[in-house]
């Protein structure tokens, strides 16, 4: 890759940041060139992001329909899985999975809710509900 071939496609999700790319200058020496993103990278990233967003939206509707507890939604929005959530909150995987059931989640002790809220960096109030709009918290990387 030559310096002038380093992609500068101004990808919006870079939010003005730049990534370092290695490229050859006119004298054939390698230099680091900051890049504003590559359109092809945006394509593959977009696929993954859309998929996560669609999945999260599906989960949100399931929570509203009373199929899963809000805990499940917040776990997914933090890109965690039950194993990571269990370790972060200090609650066993078995119990975490049990708390994905809305009925059981609704009866949780405040101390358990506080553990989950801390693990997910949310307030207890936020933990108990899901957002009204599908936009979520914007953390849907």
């Amino acid at each position: 890759m030559k310096v002038k071939e380093v992609p500068q496609d101004d990808i919006t999700f870079y939010e003005g940041e730049k990534r370092a790319c290695y490229a050859l200058n006119d004298e054939g020496k390698y230099v680091i060139v900051p890049s504003t993103g590559w359109e092809y990278e945006a394509v593959v990233n977009g696929l993954a992001v859309d998929e996560l967003a669609a999945h999260l939206e599906k989960t949100r509707k399931e929570v509203l329909a009373g199929i899963r507890s809000p805990l499940y939604y917040h776990m997914e929005s933090r890109q965690m899985n039950p194993q990571i959530l269990a370790k972060t909150s200090g609650i066993s995987v078995f119990r975490v999975k049990r708390h994905f059931r809305p009925g059981i989640f609704a009866r949780l002790k405040p101390s358990l809710l506080a553990s989950y809220a801390k693990a997910l960096a949310l307030s207890v109030e936020e933990l108990k509900t899901v957002p009204d709009k599908s936009a979520g918290k914007g953390n849907d990387t």
Partner: peptide, 16 residues
Amino acid sequence: LANVVRMQEEVGTGGA
């Protein structure tokens, strides 16, 4: 396939 390309280009590799 997209995942392979992400690992190749997206995660701070300096290209390729």
